[in-house]
Design a protein around this nucleic acid. Structure first.
Length: 474
RNA sequence: GGCGGGGUAGCCAAGUGGUAAGGCACGGCUCUGCAAAAGCUGCAUCGUCGGUUCGAUUCCGACCCUCGCCUCCA
């Protein structure tokens, strides 16, 4: 089966065929975070989505080179370090570490490469020099360098590949009209920004004097440096389509480094934004969740991941606390089933079998269809129900359990939820559970219920199962 | 104003020209000393109004509502 993905370049679902279709190597770049603060849940929708793409490509037999940039020089960063007096590297290092921790919490595989903008200044400068030589970049009187869209178009290149924007029909804001010194054209953008006093010690030497890179250029420089001038997949949040990605295309294709007939990027994917509690996220509304906020509230990374993966990536999705609670319950059903299957498999060594679980086939069918996760989950829960029914009828043999478990593990490599970790139970809780069991055996239910209440006040509950009473954290 | 997404049960969310997946919540039942957990099970005619069609939630038109981009926000 072929994987089909929506391509923003042509606004349609297309079969995904990498440049290196023969050996199934895939170059994939995802715009990463600007490290000036903790990432919020909206940021991580995109990164979890990128992780799904990467995992699913691997599931399909591709060898993926996953690159994600870390933007560690930028206006907001400069403002923050000026306020706090922290050195740039220390400040951005702190939030980079936090970002990577959050990725781990959400069970995202670390990108194979995590280039930082400040480590690629020479490549950035080279690229700007090249654009300048080709007449597509121009200097302004303050020592900045801009990308000239008009000149770019004269070269036969197309500006406006990802979005159709009619410059004359655009809203003229004060920002555009009053800003940016002597740009030739309102939509030209900075490649290199001349040093200003507010930049403090954040600057690099360049052929145009001291300054720092513009925002878009780092992604062009780093992606081409690590994946070549033409690569397969580029992803990011929908807001980045314009101007960021459009400008990346312009800078990269303006460099003329691509082989004749090859684009900078073959396939563009954009993840839609999230609403949180039905509203756009904002600090004043109190719905601005970071991963660590949610963890503090007792939600696990896999619950958050599961919820983020419930809806199709091109759908604006409403992320709610109620949804997270639901995610917990739904995941528990899967966990319980997996526990049953594991138990059955372990009871008798399962003989090898030729039969194959239908689960991965159904899930792959759904994911092949532009990563239709909703359909994939429907298959998973159909499987949960059907397997439970089979288990209840007693027809299920250890080989059947082994088969279904193998099916789950196969598709799990793409979904990346992992298994629930059993937390150790404190001895004083275990003691009370034992005391309650003793009371129950003595038919002293009043005492048993009293102990249960006591446990509840300690944040624990107890569940009576066939294999004995099990303590559980509330 | 320009461009692009959406409006499907209490909530989240798939989908199709022939009478609508899945999850959560809720109800019933099973299990349980009682619970909990789990299991089984029940629960919608698809924003409004027109049109095309034997038949539309799915196609076309209009309208209403909502979200995003057009401003270095995923």
């Amino acid at each position: 089966m072929a994987l089909r993905l929506f391509n923003t370049l042509r606004r349609q679902v297309e079969e995904f065929i990498p440049f290196d279709a023969e050996d199934k190597n895939v170059g994939m770049y995802c715009c990463g975070p600007t490290v000036y603060d903790y990432g919020h849940i909206g940021n991580f929708r995109t990164f979890v989505f990128a992780d799904l793409v990467r995992r699913y490509l691997a599931f399909k037999g591709f060898t993926v080179n996953h690159v994600m940039n870390i933007t560690d020089v930028e206006d907001k960063i400069i403002r923050r370090i000026a306020e706090s007096g922290t050195p740039l590297a220390e400040f951005t290092g702190r939030y980079t570490d936090a970002f990577l921790e959050d990725l781990d919490i959400l069970k995202c595989l670390r990108p194979h490469q995590l280039p930082r903008a400040t480590n690629f200044i020479p490549q950035i400068i080279d690229l700007i020099v090249r654009l300048e030589k080709r007449g597509i970049a121009y200097r302004t009187s303050d020592g900045s360098v801009y990308f000239g869209i008009a000149a770019y178009r004269t070269c036969g290149c197309q500006y406006g590949q990802l979005v159709q924007l009619d410059p004359d029909a655009q809203r003229q804001t004060e920002r555009i009209s009053g800003d940016e010194y002597d740009k030739e054209n309102a939509s030209d953008f900075a490649l290199w920004k001349a040093r200003v006093s507010q930049d403090g010690s954040v600057f690099w030497e360049s052929p145009w004097g001291q300054g720092r890179p513009g925002w878009h250029i780092e992604c062009s420089a780093m992606s081409m440096a690590l994946l070549g001038p033409s690569f397969d997949l580029h992803l990011g949040g929908e807001d980045l389509a314009f101007p960021h990605h459009e400008d990346e295309i312009a800078q990269s294709e303006g460099s003329g480094l691509q082989q004749c007939g090859r684009p900078f990027v073959k396939h563009w994917l954009h993840a839609s934004h999230l609403l949180v509690e039905g509203k756009k996220m904002s600090k004043s509304l109190g719905n601005y969740y970071t991963v660590r906020d949610l963890v503090t509230q007792g939600f696990s990374g896999r619950e958050i991941r599961f919820l983020l993966l419930r809806a199709h990536y091109r759908e604006t999705f409403n992320f709610t606390l109620e949804g997270l609670e639901g995610a917990r319950v739904a995941l528990n059903r899967i966990d319980v089933l997996l526990g049953r299957l594991t138990e059955l498999t372990e009871s008798i060594p399962a003989a090898p079998t030729d039969s194959v679980s239908k689960l991965p086939i159904k899930v792959a069918e759904a994911l092949d269809d532009d990563l239709n996760v909703s359909r994939a989950w429907a298959s998973v829960f159909d499987w949960v129900r059907d397997t439970n029914v089979a288990l209840a009828t007693g027809r299920f043999q250890p080989t059947d359990a082994a088969r279904e478990l193998a099916g789950w593990h196969l598709i799990e490599t793409a979904l990346g939820l992992g298994r629930k970790l059993d937390q150790p139970t404190p001895p004083e809780i275990l003691e009370r559970v034992k005391a309650r069991t003793a009371a129950k055996l003595a038919h002293d239910f009043v005492k048993a219920d009293l102990i249960r209440e006591e446990l509840r006040s300690l944040g624990w509950t107890v569940e009576d199962t066939k294999t004995g009473a099990k303590p559980k954290r509330l």
